[in-house]
Structure formats: C-alpha cells, structure tokens
Design a protein around this nucleic acid. Structure first.
Lengths: 389, 389
DNA sequence: GATGTTTGTTAGTGAACCTTACGAAAGGGT
DNA sequence: ACCCTTTCGTAAGGTTCACTAACAAACATC
C-alpha cells in the first residue's frame, strides 16, 4: 500500500482545478413545482382519458385536495372538462369523470423536409383533420419563409377552433430557440423562424429538426419506448435520437447528422460533400432507385437492397453499441426500405454488436408513414403547452 | 390540397393509440425545490470558493433572505463554514465569506477495473490524500467482494475526518441502484454491491460503471465540457458518455460497451467473443503490445499504432456524427495511446465525418492518468451528497 | 333504516419563498 | 466631525403551495 506525498498531489495539480460536478442550474420556486404538477395532471389524462380526480390523485401521488385545486385551475383555462359521471355500480359517491378538452383546440403541424411544404390541422390526439400543401418551386431564403407563412396561413384560416400552437419540423440544424442555424436546401442561415412565425401569427410556435420531430412522433404514437433512434431515408439520410424519453440535440445542435459519415473501409462512390463512401451514397433514394433500375434481375435488385442495408447496419452498429439502444426505427419510402433492406440492416447490426441481454435490438419500419414529421411537430406543441421539464 | 376523411383517420388508427408525450414523472413538492436550491448553493460554492451570501444570492437569483436561511441550515450541518471577512476596500458593510467545509470530510474512492483493486482517500476537491491497494489474486464472486470490503476497511481506518461517502467504479454493467448486473472478470452476476457496502459500513455508497466514473472525473477535473465521450483502453475497450452534463446509461445500463463492435469491412482477428474484427482485437493492450513487440522497426511500430488508431476512428466516426460530439478523450497506457495512435484516431474521425462547424472535434488524452476512475468515483459521491436530482 | 365506502370540498397547518424594512459597518464628501 | 451613500445580513410579515383532518353527498349492502 502506497501513500502519496503532498508533492505528488502538487505535481498532478489536483488542487488547482475545481470540480464542476453539477451542471449549471437555476433556482426552483414553489410555483415551478406547481407547473410541474399541472403537467403531471395533463399528462395522466392525456394517456388515459375519462378519469376522476380521485383516480388521478392515486396515480400521481398527490392528495385529492391538491388535485381538486389543480383541476379547478385547468378547468377555468378550458384545458380540462368534466365529461359526466362514472356509471359502473360501486359503493360510494359516483365519480365525476374528467378529460382533456380534446375537441376545443386544433394544432397546426408543418413538415418542411420534402420537395413541397406540407401541413395539417390536427386534434389533440394527433389525428389529422385537414391537410394543406405548398409547392416550394425551388424557392430559398426569404421566399421559402414566405411559402411557410402562406402554408400556415391557409391552415389557420381553416381552423374552426382556437389553435393551441404551431409546430414546424425543418430540415437542417435548428437550435433550441427555433432558429434554423443552417439548412442548405432551403437557403437558410441563422433564420429565426420560430420568432418570425410567432410574431406573424401571435401563436405559440415550436420549430424543431425534422428527424427530431419524427422520433417524437414515433415515441408518442408508435410502440417505441424512451430510448430509440429513428433513421430517415430520403433525398438525404438523417436521424433523430431519443434518450431517456427526451431528444438529443448535440453540442452544436447537429445530433443525428449521419448522412455524411463514411461507412466501411473499401472506398465507395463519390459524394456531393467531397468524401467517398458516405452513408448517403448508398442509401439516399435517388441513388438507390437508380441502382435498382440498373439491376437486371429480381435477384440483383435484392442484392442492391441488401448491400444498402448492410451499409446502414455498419454505420449503426457502433451507435447501437455505444448507446445501448434497444430500438431502431426506419422512416422513408416503404417500397425501398421495407423488406430486404430492413432485414439486412437488422442482421448486420446484430452480427456486429454484442447483445448484452440476448434479443436486445428491435429494428423495424415506422407505422406512421409520410405524416410522421407533421405529427411529430404537433407533439412538440403538445409538449410545449403541456409543459415538459 | 387534400382533406382527410374520418375513414382515413380510422384506417391509420390514429384515434386508438394515445400519445405518450411526456415521460412518466412524479409529483414535485416544495421540499424538493428546497433540496434543489440547497444543491445550487453548494454547487456555486464548489465552483468558486470564498463567496459571501450576497454573492451567491446574485448568482443563483435567490434573495439574500432565502439564501441566509439556506446557508444557516448548511452551516448547522457542517457542510459550509464562514471563513472570515472580505478585505478589499469597498463602501458598505464588509462581506462575511463562506466556503464548503473542505477540510471536514474525506471521501473514499475505489477503482475495481484493474488487475488489483485500488482505492484512495480524497478531499472534497478530489485531491488524493492516501492510497491503498488490494491484490485480487484472481478471486471472483464473494471472494472478490470480500477483497473490496477489505480495501475500503483499510481506507476507512486511516481516515482522520468523517467520511462523506464511498464511491466505487466497477467494470461491467451496473444499474442505477449500484447492483452489478454482470461483470464477467469479477464473476459477479446481480451482485448488490452498493447495498452490501452500505450495510457493512453504514456510509453513503455509490457504485458506478468504471468508464462512467472516468468520464465524470474528466468532466469535473479536466477541461471537458458537458458533451463528451471517454474511451478507456486497457485489457478491454470501453467508453463512457456524457451528454448534456449527465452520464448516459442506456436502455439496459450497458451504454459505452464498444469493445465488441465489429469495425471495418475487411475481416480481422478472431475475438474471445466469437466474432471477427471486434474493436478489442485491434486495441486491447495485450494484443497491441504483442503486435508492437513483433514489429521489427520503429517505422513498423508506428504503423501498428496508426492502424489501431484508424480502427478506433472508424468505430468512433458514426458515434461522433450521430451524437454531434465536440470532444473525445482517451484513457489508458500513455506509452501506447499518446502520439501516433491518438493522432491517427483524430485524423480518421475527421476524415470520416462532416464537421458542421469546422474545427468541431477535440480529441486528446486524459490528463488524469491512472487515478481517473478513483477520482471519478469520488465525484459520484459528491454528486450524490450535493444532490444532482 | 343502519352501516360502510368512495368522492370531492372546506378549513386549517406548515414549508418555502418573497417583499419590505432595518441595523451594522464601511467609504466618501463637505 | 458629521452626514450621506453603499453594501451586507437579518427580521417581520405576506403569498403560494401542498398537506392533514374533517365532513357532506351519494351510493351499495346488510
């Protein structure tokens, strides 16, 4: 057993650097607790409708008294309504059931990731009520912004109920304030989209990265749990990560940008970014479709798809291992992704990682189709209004 | 512009699945807020010593009144002491300075990741005061646990101050309760180490994965910020991830397990796990040392190191891209890692990812040497006692 | 009809933070 | 020397929030 002398300690300069154990945090007041508990009530009702005050109290651990108080507050704000009495025959006073005021608000969800801007009016459950589309016609910069405004305008005009908020899923890099730091396709640099839209419409607006919106949709409406990666394959390849139930943004808000990661050690086609063998050169739909068209036989087409899946699997394996992901979901054209490609991804990832507990990884297509980003954008509004944190 | 009919909605089953927007959370009481604010005070003082009540109040946003109250409470618990008056010449009543009671407690930090179990007595700043070592002699299971107890016993006996807590960094998979779910080298399966040690010593005990402890140490004592990956190279290869200032555990507490991820598309040596080309087959120190010994010239040795670095870079690239990491730190034998290998990792990762903002990635060796796990274990105790929430 | 159960509300208590106000202790100006 | 200003820490009292205790209402069961 050795003993360090003071000089050893000094030599390592341990006294100099002061530890930063905790992340810089802010004060918490009782009113913040109130807000949290408010969200808790809304959350509970959101997941299971038609519960009584006593039910919610039991679930949340709050007292019936406190809960009554919270509910009264939420009723005056028209976020909650009483929906009648419970009818089953039990002893005791019959319960008055509550529910979110689901038919009292609309949400506007917008998806800027495609060739045309798409939007929809949704209800609080995330069901799509009305759709709208705005061809972009190659517009960039301020013109593109104007098209977004026009799209939202048309949806707002069609709403028959108060609008809870506007959610936007944008490609590119978006910071926490909803400023699009960089979106090459749309010609945006430091575009303060959220602030502009909020000013223009006087509504709550949330702007997020499209893949992050998608991963939230999958979490909310799909069967996915809180740790998941959603890979979007389209004109480009991107991804959104959900860790512990909340999206990962990354140190420069660019988390999920895997399209230009080089995959494999055997070269590959040249990419628009200048490198060789980027994930996109194998998977982006234009290249993939071209390769499929060039394949002479069904067998050859299968080979193309399996190769693409293998490449994605090679890129995903280190991520799945490092993050101990239990679930990866693919989103994109079903006719390309579903089947051989998905199977191949799963096989490749399983072959290249160690399942700590066997049967660890689930890999599947999303069930939400093309609406995933719009519906995810709506979820961001719900989260914002219901209050996360 | 299309409009969805109700049947479309039904067809997609949107009404059926209820969104789970928010992660299941628990109620928050005023007393929890109090705890949070207590931590905030300790945190503020931990980062910069010798501040007055008024200073802390300004920093945290709490009022001087509230702060006086919190400080009084912390002083009665001997966690904070008054250290005299401020001496600079200013108008107004001179400030009475406060500091953490840095000389009033010891922390026990233990590292189980090496051939021998190592431990130390540390002060609140993380400086090592006394060391102890306990050869494992190949013991596994209960015998290994007994060795851990003996090691801690010897350190506790040597402490001249009350012990704030015991931190343990263990290899393998450790859950949030400090149960070692699986540590093949130590022959542990579902070993409730934290509970056992807490029972035995009547002290606060924190048990974490060794790489997670290391990444906390690097964050606390090194220059690393809140988004970082720390790769440990030794008998095996592992990693710890810090995202937004807090460690990532993964869906099955196995985050960071990258040693058995297959890297590259060109085969590789056979691994103990049965696969070919695992990261460990290129990087684990026994293999690396053997390869170096077999290399005839300095030039060949350089090649071996560069090859190893390249392999690590290939595995890291997708992770760095997906998580948008700004910093990767290596920990392990300096004579192997520092130099050609580290350079090669950096080059490879940069060449295989897209730096969204140029100069994005910092890649370097840790400056904490062999003590990194022990000191990280001490940080877990500080976090636990100061209260992370 | 008496008893027990469940629901939701009223009344009162304690915790935690706030605002307002004040004494203490210094510097600076006349 | 005196007064004014600044800064620090503490008191006193108010507000918010959730809790406990108690109760009325409404139902089932015996």
């Amino acid at each position: 057993m050795r003993t360090t002398t003071p000089s050893f300690v000094e030599a390592h300069g341990q006294g100099a650097a002061r530890a930063r154990v905790l992340r810089p945090s802010t004060k918490v007041l009782p009113e913040h607790a109130r807000g949290h508990n408010r969200s808790l009530v809304l959350q509970t009702l959101y997941r299971a409708a038609h519960q009584s005050r006593a039910d919610i109290a039991r679930q949340t651990g709050l007292t019936r008294v406190t809960l009554s108080d919270l509910v009264a507050e939420l009723i005056t704000e028209h976020l909650i309504v009483e929906t009648g009495q419970r009818e089953d025959a039990r002893p005791g006073k019959p319960a008055t059931l509550l529910d979110l005021n689901r038919t009292a608000f609309h949400i506007v969800g917008v998806d800027l990731s495609g060739e045309a801007f798409r939007g929809a009016l949704l209800d609080l459950d995330g069901a799509i009520l009305e759709r709208a589309e705005q061809p972009r016609d190659g517009d960039v910069g301020a013109d593109a912004t104007a098209k977004v405004v026009a799209l939202i305008e048309s949806l707002v005009a069609r709403a028959t109920l108060p609008i809870l908020g506007v959610g936007v899923g944008s490609p590119g890099i978006v910071d926490l304030d909803g400023t699009v730091l960089s979106a090459p396709n749309l010609g945006w640099t430091n575009e303060p989209l959220r602030a502009q839209l909020a000013d223009r419409f006087g509504l709550a607006v949330v702007v997020t990265n499209d893949a992050n919106a998608a991963v939230l949709a999958e979490h909310s409406f799909g069967a996915a749990d809180g740790d998941m990666m959603l890979v979007t394959v389209g004109h480009g390849v991107g991804s959104g990560l959900l860790l512990g139930g909340s999206p990962l943004y990354g140190s420069r808000f660019a988390a999920g940008e895997i399209g230009h990661v080089v995959v494999g050690t055997d070269g590959g086609a040249e990419c628009a970014c200048g490198k060789r063998g980027c994930l996109e050169t194998w998977l982006a739909t234009p290249r993939l479709s071209a390769a499929l068209a060039a394949a002479p036989t069904a067998h050859a087409r299968d080979g193309v798809l399996r190769e693409a899946g293998q490449r994605l699997g090679i890129a995903l394996a280190p991520i799945v291992g490092a993050l101990n992901l239990a679930e990866v979901v693919l989103s994109g054209p079903v006719e390309l992704l579903d089947g051989a490609l998905t199977d191949s991804v799963a096989e490749t990832v399983r072959a290249r990682t160690m399942d700590v507990f066997h049967g660890g990884l689930t890999l599947r297509m999303t069930t939400l189709g093309d609406d995933i980003v719009m519906r995810g954008a709506a979820v961001t509004v719900l989260s914002g209004v219901l209050g996360v944190s």
